[in-house]
Write a protein that binds this DNA or RNA. Structure first.
Lengths: 202, 202
DNA sequence: ACTTTGTAAACTAAAATAGTTTTCTCATTT
DNA sequence: AAATGAGAAAACTATTTTAGTTTACAAAGT
């Protein structure tokens, strides 16, 4: 039987609920009702498993994005839907997971070729380009830089070390932070759409 | 200077955000901007620190409860406010924290006298007694047993292993589960109040 | 100057956990 | 029915973490 997908999905849930380090291989195995050996049959080590999990998360997330993107009438609507989705994801994602991700990230050059990229909020420049085409974003913005910035804003908004959840509600931070940035790159038409959706969503 | 309270409060936040095991003493120290040594000056070991944290959580929680209790017109109103507060707390509380608490709990008889009690939802029989007095709860219920049961219902509602947050929204589970139990011990007057508040809260 | 209070960092000892190996069992195939 | 293979179960090792200690040192108060 091919356990690979089953393992990845369960590991994904456990990692993001409890954090990566908190989930031991024994724990994962017993949750799956299989033996630890079987996991190591499919994945060389925990690192490879993590890579598999992150890859799967990215793929799933990317699909959802595409769906939202294609089902929306305009970019602003798409972004609002996207923010909702992200809000959901981040609510399910334990701070421990984010902490562990940072730690893995900081272990510089663990193995060359290994990319430990943040699974969610992988915004892509397509959104920005479409926004410009639709006359919602200003024509004079640098697509590449803006794309990177929006990703950073999204990441930062959800960083518990920057906005401790005691003082802020994660969802609100994303909204205000991200939307304000959005306003900054919008045309008048874009601003109108933002205000419209913001009111409707509230 | 007396660091004790500062340490306890920071540890409390970190424990419930990242889980107990995920927070190392070094991490805690550097977060506080003090040396690890200083922590050990005040607390013999991590266990004693955890006890301190839990005690403080219980006290703070108990105070809030008393406040809610005294500021409410009737028991049902108090319980709805209480549920709101609990919802908040559980949202801030990482599943890792709950997992670690269970683990500590299972290490039977770690030290005689050590009580590792769950900090939140320490409902007390006062609420039930007041409910009976107000004619909201049936007179024939066993106060002690009901108290214990309500506590268990509250705990269970927030147990991620029972209700994985993928499938359920924690807040909704508490609401339906707890409220249904509540209905079971209520008189007609109680039922009316529950329906009233439930509608208003929605 | 000396004591206290705390920092910084190196250190040790103990615990936890990744990863391995062995043995056993059940099911499928030949 | 014997052989093969896939996986369970559990014991084991080796590595890594982390709790907790010790040491050397610095600033501040007396």
């Amino acid at each position: 039987m091919d356990y690979r997908q089953t393992i990845v999905e369960e590991a994904a849930v456990m990692f993001r609920t409890y954090g990566i380090r908190a989930v031991t291989m024994d724990m994962l195995a017993s949750h799956l009702g299989i033996s630890k050996r079987t996991i190591y049959e499919v994945f060389r080590d925990k690192d490879e498993l993590l890579q598999g999990v992150l890859k799967w998360m990215r793929e799933k997330q990317s699909e959802t994005m595409k769906k939202i993107f294609s089902e929306s009438e305009n970019v602003i609507e798409a972004i609002f839907k996207m923010l909702d989705m992200m809000g959901n994801h981040f609510q399910k994602m334990s701070p421990a997971f984010q902490m562990d991700m940072k730690r893995y990230h900081n272990e510089i050059l663990r193995k060359p070729g290994d990319q430990v990229e943040f699974p969610y909020s992988s915004s892509n420049s397509e959104i920005i380009k479409r926004g410009i085409r639709e006359g919602v974003f200003r024509k004079d913005i640098d697509v590449d830089i803006t794309n990177k910035c929006m990703l950073e804003v999204a990441k930062m908004s959800n960083d518990k070390t920057v906005f401790p959840s005691d003082d802020y509600v994660s969802k609100d931070v994303v909204r205000t932070f991200y939307l304000n940035y959005l306003r900054g790159i919008s045309t008048q038409k874009g601003l109108d759409l933002i205000n419209l959706h913001d009111k409707k969503h509230k």
